[in-house]
Design a protein around this nucleic acid. Structure first.
Length: 941
RNA sequence: AGGCGCGUAGCUCAGUGGGAGAGCGCUACCUUGACACGGUAGAGGUCAGGGGUUCGAAACCCCUCGUGCCUACCA
């Protein structure tokens, strides 16, 4: 006997089923060579991360696809893993260290990295367990980490090959620098925020003669690094100043006034100070005019020696104050105004970015980008929705070389070595070009203290090579030092054979390794079976915010190293916002925790909500209210199941093909077939909301509302011939429904499957419904039944006839077909309308004092005389007439329009004509009835 | 400033040329033998506004207003 709990309790079964699936290897791809591959690589979440709504939506969509494809006969691989998240992870561990009062520099590089691995083992990857909670059917045996051995090998291979091709190079230029994280950042890792600051107006006196030029700046402290003042050549105010020399305030330097059309005369005073070492526009200007660059700010965000003895060592903001005070003292500060402008912040720690002149590693992006653009243009990869194409093209057009080096420790170390004992191509000893800064000053016995210096100097001072390496906090290697890039760690200089070689201290941008994710996770550079089978992957599911960070880079790397795109489709899903449409953020306090939702409502309801919300091209507004609604849906499904299994003894487990179904059964089978087609099509088109809604509608409003109710008269009869067929049909439709639902709601459907059907080991192994037969004639016939029932119910409802009151009804049928169909469903009609008697037929006459409802091919009469006030019915009919008149006048106008008759497609014309005559007919009937009722009323009837 | 969206029922949103849909909410009635996490019946819309194309526009084009995001600039 089938047993089912009285209420569905998700918490009790979800974990059990998950362990069951995973333990039985159902998440692993079927090795069957006949099956076509379907592969998704997960966008690797940060190892530091915990699941938020965006992840939840992302994972739900991938899981729907994976489960659906598995059930439709594909060998599915959903490959999970995590990203080492260089800066973020390093920050987490540094924070931990600072609680113990130590910095990473005190710990040293190797010990620090050990500490991070330890942290990862203990706390990292929380998100993996959370993904399991929502039911993600990832193949955990293939889980990867961007820093694991295999992926590191891939990173190294890629770096070496790009280096050898000259696509990777070092250069000294201005980059975004985070003084707190102490590393370079790529353009994308800078977030601009509107910030209120001040615009300071500063006088720059002419070097000879009187007068001055006033410049406006938001960053007075960079004045110390100015190397010019620029004006627009067209600006008459400054014409006579061009080429003159100014005394740079607070310094003893003299700087020229130059003319450049890039200067906006309308902004500030129309004269702008130029600091090529600390501003991107100024850098460009400096290049055009061959101005020197003076770096006055260091990597710690403090003023350098170049800033002058007085300011050296001051924090940049302290220096700003000092400079302003000093300018005031010299009467050079003309004024200051409030000024709102956008300021770059580090995307990891929110510290204000400092543009700094440093040597970094870059990838030449132009030709890979062109290929990646072409691949999308050629349709080798398509974005869904395709509105993202343009964004992608636009960004790729403006793309700049990618800065891939980071001055942190947690990451893939750049596989490049330098020899301090060789001379470079200009004959300079390279040891003179490599500078070391020690963690802490090293004291000699004689009281001499050394903070660092060039390699050569340090060696001369008596430091051994090993000591220098051990004690170096920072190593600056000049651009002119020859790099050796190798797949294997280098032990000696390939040129001179010295064992005293220095490895490049930088690590790679995390995105460098994630760009390889679609093939590195499948085993590349080895030619593995997985790689052969699953590359290119089928679809990438991700949010639009990382199209540039990640998707574009994967395309470039995939095309370069696999000679094919990494994925066929890119499904871009929405951002999850709160119910008011605001971005969720910790500071706003409107964050919804997916795990809390799962606890409260179950993973299935949660997943269903996300799917139902996920309309293409629109943000998701998550509301708990709707989530609750979908929990009700599960409850509905559960209770329907309870109802169905009560008839277990009549269940012969025969498919509907072997039965002679009654009309209702044929109808529901046809509706099921329709839904199955719709769901498959919608999933094919990534229309998850439509797929979810169409199952919802079918299960609730067709299967439960109509079919279950229609089955009752048959099931409650002691000895009904149709009973077995009907019960089989009930079970069949239930079975197909839960299969249809499984990709969206895996847990409850498995529970029902195992409890009720228990065929295959798991619903996951069953075949997804598709290609069921439609019965259009049955659907048309059912219209009569539904219309008749709805008609009678409407009268009851609108006239407020108590549901407990059993009434009589008459249906005058206008066609034989209607009569036949209704007659053969008389029991259902009576049951569903709570009528004790219904007369059906072409000769049925309307009884005096009846309420009326006119439908296609039938007129419905409910005698109400004596039951209630006839006035109510007259009112009701009056309202309906008004509605009919409105429609009629509209159609009439249309049908008398000759242009319409001549131009509209014939089908449309015919449809409207038919509609018109139907309405005319209906109106006549109603009018007739109204007159009758009115006469009864007058006669005191 | 440039680009991309959005504006449809009280709320959240479907609807890519033939006269308006769903879910939730709301109203009335109902403990009808799966389900009150339910049932039945209702109410509710100048599809932001204006103009155009068309026989016909919520849909296509233009303008305006409102709103969101992205990119750039912000000395």
């Amino acid at each position: 006997m089938i047993k089912l709990e009285p209420n569905y309790n998700p918490a009790e079964i979800e974990d059990t089923w998950y362990v069951f699936w995973d333990g039985n290897g159902y998440f692993r791809p079927d090795p069957d060579p006949e099956k076509k591959p379907f592969c998704i690589v997960i966008p690797p979440p940060n190892v530091t991360g915990s699941l938020h709504m965006g992840h939840a939506l992302n994972a739900t969509i991938q899981d729907i696809l994976a489960r659906w494809k598995r059930m439709t006969g594909f060998k599915v691989l959903w490959l999970p893993g995590m990203d080492h998240a260089g800066i973020a992870t390093q920050n987490v561990v540094e924070r931990e260290l600072s609680k113990e009062g130590i910095s990473r520099y005190e710990l040293g590089r190797d010990a620090f990295i050990g500490r991070v691995w330890k942290w990862k083992a203990e706390y990292g990857g929380k998100i993996i367990h959370q993904l399991k909670k929502i039911g993600a059917s990832c193949d955990w045996t293939r889980e990867r980490f961007t820093l694991d051995e295999g992926l590191s090998r891939a990173v190294r291979e890629v770096f070496v090959r790009l280096f050898d091709e000259g696509l990777i190079y070092r250069d000294n230029r201005l980059i975004n620098w985070c003084p707190r994280c102490h590393t370079a950042l790529s353009d994308l890792e800078v977030e601009y925020e509107e910030t209120e600051g001040k615009l300071y107006y500063i006088k720059y006196p002419l070097a000879d003669g009187d007068g001055y030029i006033t410049v406006a700046t938001t960053r007075p402290e960079t004045l110390l690094g100015d190397t010019a003042v620029a004006v627009n050549p067209e600006d008459p105010r400054y014409e006579q100043f061009i080429g003159k020399v100014l005394n740079l305030p607070l310094t003893h330097r003299k700087i020229p006034v130059i003319a450049d059309p890039a200067v906006d005369s309308a902004f500030g005073t129309g004269a702008v100070k130029i600091t090529p070492a600390h501003d991107f526009n100024d850098e460009a200007m400096g290049k055009r005019h061959k101005l020197p660059s003076i770096s006055v700010i260091t990597e710690d965000g403090k003023m350098s020696a170049e800033a002058g003895e007085k300011y050296k060592g001051l924090d940049r903001y302290a220096c700003r104050k000092a400079v302003i005070n000093d300018l005031k003292d010299e009467d050079l500060l003309e004024s200051e105004k409030r000024h709102v402008h956008s300021v770059g912040h580090c995307y990891r720690c929110k510290t204000v970015i400092e543009p700094l002149l440093t040597i970094q590693w870059y990838v030449r992006i132009e030709s890979p980008a062109a290929e990646a653009v072409q691949a999308v243009k050629d349709g080798k990869t398509r974005f869904i929705p395709d509105s993202w194409d343009n964004n992608y093209y636009a960004w790729m057009r403006d793309i700049k070389d990618w800065c891939i080096s980071r001055q942190i420790w947690w990451g893939h170390r750049i596989p490049v070595w330098y020899c301090p004992e060789c001379s470079n191509d200009k004959g300079v000893c390279q040891g003179d070009l490599i500078e070391h800064i020690f963690y802490k000053p090293v004291e000699f016995g004689n009281g001499r203290v050394v903070n660092g210096g060039t390699y050569s100097e340090l060696r001369k001072s008596g430091f051994s090579h090993e000591e220098i390496i051990r004690d170096s906090k920072i190593i600056h290697v000049s651009k002119s030092v020859t790099p050796f890039c190798r797949r294997e760690d280098l032990a000696e200089c390939p040129s001179c054979g010295s064992r005293h070689i220095i490895r490049d201290p930088d690590v790679l941008d995390t995105w460098f390794s994630s760009a390889l994710w679609p093939f590195s996770t499948l085993g590349w550079p080895d030619k593995t079976e997985d790689l052969k089978t699953f590359y290119p992957t089928s679809v990438l599911v991700t949010g639009f915010d990382i199209i540039f960070f990640w998707v574009a880079r994967m395309l470039m790397m995939g095309l370069k190293f696999m000679e094919d795109v990494p994925f066929r489709d890119v499904y871009i899903h929405a951002l999850v916002r709160d119910a008011k449409g605001q971005k969720m953020s910790k500071s706003k306090g409107n964050v919804i925790d997916p795990l809390v939702m799962i606890d409260k409502y179950g993973a299935d309801a949660f997943r269903f909500s996300l799917a139902a919300f996920a309309a293409q091209g629109r943000d998701v507004r998550f509301s708990e209210e709707r989530l609750e609604g979908y929990r009700h849906f599960i409850n509905k499904l559960w209770n329907a199941t309870k109802f169905i299994i009560r008839n277990e003894e009549s269940w012969t487990k025969q498919p509907p093909a072997g039965m002679e179904p009654d009309l209702a059964s044929k109808w529901i089978l046809s509706r099921l077939a329709f839904t199955v087609d719709e769901v498959n099509r919608n999933l094919e088109d990534y229309r998850f909301n439509d797929a979810a809604n169409s199952i919802y509608h079918f299960v609730w409003h067709e299967f439960c509302d109509w079919y279950l109710e229609l089955s009752k008269p048959v099931l409650y009869q002691e000895d009904s011939t149709g009973k077995t067929a009907m019960v089989n049909c009930l079970f069949f439709v239930l079975e197909k429904s839960i299969q249809l639902l499984h990709p969206i709601m895996p847990f409850v459907t498995e529970e029902i499957w195992k409890d009720v059907f228990g065929k295959e080991d798991s619903i996951m192994l069953s075949r997804y419904p598709s290609g069921l037969p439609r019965f259009i004639a049955a659907e048309e016939s059912m219209e009569y039944v539904i219309n008749a029932i709805t008609g009678i119910r409407s009268i009851r409802g609108e006239l407020n006839i108590s549901p407990s009151l059993e009434i009589k009804a008459d249906i005058k049928t206008l066609t034989e077909k209607a009569e036949a169909v209704l007659n053969s469903n008389l029991d259902a009609l009576k049951k569903l309308t709570r009528c004790k008697e219904i007369r059906i037929g072409g000769k049925v006459e309307r009884l005096k004092g009846s309420a009326v409802s006119v439908m296609n091919e039938m007129e419905i009469y409910v005698p109400i005389e004596g039951l209630l006030d006839i006035k109510n019915e007259i009112n009701r009919l009056f309202k309906e007439m008004a509605k009919l008149d409105e429609s009629l006048s509209f159609l009439n106008k249309k049908l008398r329009n000759e242009d319409f008759i001549n131009n509209a497609p014939k089908a449309v014309l015919e449809k409207d004509k038919a509609k018109f005559s139907d309405l005319v007919n209906k109106r006549e009937k109603i009018e007739e009835n109204m007159k009758l009722l009115e006469s009864i009323e007058k006669n005191g009837g």
